[in-house]
Amino acid sequence: MSDQPIRFPDLSARPHELAVERVMSASPGLLYAALTQGFDIWFAAPGSVLMKPAVNEPFFFETEHAGIRYPHYGRFLRLEPERIVQLTWVTGADGTEGAETVVTMELVNQPRGIRLRLRHEGFPTEEARDRHLAAWPLVLEQLDHRTSADN
């Protein structure tokens, strides 16, 4: 699929976005692998991930909370090993409300670890954005915990 041009979602009618950051303990290589092929290590339900780390490749995984399954769909837009992962992110009514949003995760070296800068844009409503603004710090904390050398 990489021969095809990348079709970036039109976010012009969906202006709501968020940004969060966290200093991570793991190496850029380990974080990059977790963000492109190891979602079931830190986020997705085990056995639910269909993901190939290649630009324009679609992916699928589920999360589970209180016995309810939440499907997530997307495709990779940009991959720069150990630096940038950009993907589309589509979930249902309790997530992106079916809108194709864009998540960009940048890994920046700094003296005390790797700063993960996450930008999530294209939410159709403030409520959808606010749900993700509350969730992303917890998700990044889980990523950090599951990829840290202490674990």
Rank of each mutant, 00 (worst) to 15 (best):
D40N: 00
R78E: 14
V23G: 08
H132I: 01
P5T: 01
W89F: 14
D150K: 09
G98Y: 08
A128I: 01
T91I: 05
Y73V: 00
L77I: 08
Y70C: 01
E21S: 09
L140R: 13
R83A: 12
S25A: 11
V102C: 02
P28G: 08
M1G: 13
L30Q: 15
T36H: 02
H145Y: 11
H65W: 09
D130H: 09
L79E: 07
T36D: 01
A128Q: 04
T101S: 06
P137G: 11
E57N: 13
P58H: 07
R75Y: 10
V108L: 10
V23N: 11
D40L: 01
E57G: 07
Q110T: 15
E62P: 04
A34R: 04
I84V: 10
W42V: 00
E82I: 10
E100F: 03
L118R: 06
R69A: 11
W136N: 08
I41P: 01
M105V: 04
E121I: 05
L77G: 02
E62R: 09
S48A: 03
G47T: 02
Q4L: 08
T96V: 03
P124H: 01
E57F: 12
N109T: 14
V23Q: 12
E100D: 04
D10K: 03
T125Q: 05
R14H: 11
L116P: 07
H65S: 15
G95W: 02
G95H: 04
A66N: 13
T88P: 02
F39S: 01
H72C: 09
R131T: 02
R78L: 11
A149N: 14
Q4R: 06
V103F: 02
L30P: 15
A66M: 15
G95Q: 10
P111T: 08
P5L: 05
N151E: 11
A33N: 11
T96M: 06
W136A: 04
D150E: 13
R22Y: 05
P137M: 08
L35Y: 06
G38A: 03
Y73S: 03
P124W: 05
A128Y: 01
L35R: 03
M51V: 00
N56Q: 09
P15F: 12
Y73K: 06
E127R: 04
V139E: 12
F76P: 00
L107R: 02
V20D: 10
